[in-house]
Design a protein around this nucleic acid. Sequence first.
DNA 1: AAGCAGGGCAACCGCGAGAAT
DNA 2: TATTCTCGCGGTTGCCCTGCT
Length: 297
Amino acid sequence: MGRAPCCDKANVKRGPWSPEEDAKLKDYIEKQGTGGNWIALPHKAGLRRCGKSCRLRWLNYLRPNIRHGDFTEEEDNIIYSLFASIGSRWSVIAAHLHGRTDNDIKNYWNTKLKKKLIATMAPPPHHHLAIGTSISPPPSSSSHYNMINSLHPYNPSISTNQPLTPHQGMMMTMMGQQQQLLYQEDMGSLVNSPNRNKLIMSHQEDSHEQSTNKGIMLLSDVRSGSSKTSTVTRVKMEHRDHHHHHHEEDERSMSSVVIEDYGMEEIKQLIGSSCTSSSNSLWFDENKTEDKFMLYY
DNA sequence: AAGCAGGGCAACCGCGAGAAT
DNA sequence: TATTCTCGCGGTTGCCCTGCT
């Protein structure tokens, strides 16, 4: 049985909000509150809008103390750190940035921060491939394009007692319990960064062997849909130990609670400590069976 | 000046979780 | 306990603006 639509789509207005609609919604909520029911709100407020649309408009634009644009460097660093730690959980990240909305942060990440990160991790001019498979785009948009990053469990050059640069935070996370998969287009830059240690090209079964004692993560191209906006996808993870291994779902709750009460330094330390505590974790796409990997060093 | 491409961002979509019935 | 409903979230889309040719 299908889910009933939240509103009659034929009779609701869509698209950009007019100043009059904004005023109506703002006025109503300021006087009456949301009443805990967004679905009924537009009717009560005299708006021909879907409740979800009203909620989004209020949360992202109309509610008090919203800030738009002009992210500070400190905010950038917070976003980097939190993204490195918990991934694309924008609402959690937004909770750490006063006045910012999850939508704003998401857009900011996708349009600016990600590019900034990639740009500053530009590959050195002399890197080379070790195995004769060229770095070429995936054969199709549906294929997975995995890389295995064999890194030391921690990088002694990065002290958790020192402020981390955003990139260090990202790289430390990659060396530890990072659970994000970045698109291959991003990976090309990341894996070539001066912070890398070694990347091993192999088939996936080899990767299991190589993952035993080192922090290894698979970075997969899992482009979804046809969107021109690159996004990040989470996959399942596998824990391995010497005697057995099991699968478990990537727990979305992993760090939202933990990080909630932490300041920047604590977050950084958390990221840092994670590097040593999960060096035998392997993240992978369980559907991935046959793609080639790349080796750099 | 006109056309085109790319970037930025507001808004929509669909799903999962949890509450309500 | 099962079903329905709402909320909240992340991902995606599409429009508008700007810069380039």
